[in-house]
Design a protein around this nucleic acid. Structure first.
Length: 294
DNA sequence: CTTGAGCGC
């Protein structure tokens, strides 16, 4: 049995059926009659049955004439509509369906680094980025990319205790004449915090970036972005920075992030309220962040 | 399961 199989060309089970139908060319061709005025259509074809005998198969169908077709009132009315879009220039029949392509500009069409050659050619990559928009623009205060420079950061004033400027939009306090910050608007780090919540008078550990009162948020769904985190944490107090860790290769969220609060007690309330909070089908974990290892 | 990029217009 094994010998027999090796002597013959290998046949797959799918090809066996094809072979069986190879004799179909011996049969008379398929004939189609009608449809006549009554919409009756007759198809005559010939086949081999299971026993290998030639059989004649006649199929009679009646198609509903279009005029008799039941159309909804709306469909009848829509037929009288003038053509629009790309179909305007088409002179095909009145009932024409067209697929129209509309350009949608995506903010981030491709995950950074997802294409090998692009990440290698650094010069080209930079040129592309420069053309596409301000991806090189990264705010030093909040770390947001492509949105604003440091001087225009919506959070920059949130780090200051002065309530007088707190709720004004950034544009209102930055007149077109002045390039730098307004006189008197700047409060040195050692003077920040109102002194109430910070017992240690030294501002030395404050001179680092906005690393104060850092809250780690884990178990984020991967489509959670910094704007979402800000929305979630803003009710608890002045947020000085929001960060979502992004995988540099895939451009996707790594599922955790950090939120910095100006006031420690606000951060604490956020932790107490949001830890275990259901967000995007996941249970958030919110706790104090360990100082970054760097 | 999980602890951050970059230091400039």
């Amino acid at each position: 049995m094994a010998m027999e199989a090796t002597n013959q060309p290998k046949l797959r089970w799918g090809e066996l059926e094809d072979d069986a139908e190879d004799l179909d060319f011996l049969l008379p061709p398929k004939q189609i009659f009608g449809p006549d005025e009554n919409g009756v259509k007759k198809v005559v074809e010939y086949k081999f049955n299971a026993e290998g005998n030639k059989v004649k198969i006649t199929t009679t169908t009646r198609i509903r004439k279009l005029a008799n077709a039941r159309l909804s009132k709306g469909a009848v009315e829509r037929r009288s509509w003038p053509k629009f879009g790309d179909a305007v220039h088409e002179d095909v029949g009145a009932r024409l369906t067209m697929v129209s392509t509309e350009e949608i500009i995506l903010e981030r069409p491709r995950a950074p680094g997802s294409k090998q050659d692009e990440s290698k050619a650094a010069g080209d990559s930079l040129a592309q980025i420069g053309k596409a928009g301000a991806v090189l623009m990264v705010c030093r205060t909040c770390g947001k990319k492509g949105d604003h420079w440091t001087s225009k950061c919506p959070f920059k004033d949130l780090a200051q205790p002065s309530d007088t400027f707190m709720d004004k939009p950034p544009s209102a306090e930055a007149p077109a004449t002045g390039a730098g910050p307004q006189k008197g608007a700047y409060v040195p780090p050692s003077m920040r915090g109102g002194g109430a919540e910070r017992g240690s008078g030294g501002g030395t550990e404050m001179r680092r970036r906005n690393e104060e009162n850092s809250v780690r948020v884990t178990n984020l769904s991967e489509d959670t972005r910094e704007a979402d985190l800000l929305e979630l944490f803003r009710p608890f107090g002045h947020v000085s920075r929001v960060y979502v860790a992004i995988d540099q290769k895939t451009g996707m969220s790594r599922g955790f992030g950090f939120v910095n609060f100006v006031n420690r007690e606000d951060a604490e309330r956020a932790i107490n309220k949001l830890n275990g909070y259901g967000y995007d089908n996941l249970i958030l974990r919110v706790e104090w962040a360990a100082p970054r290892t760097n």
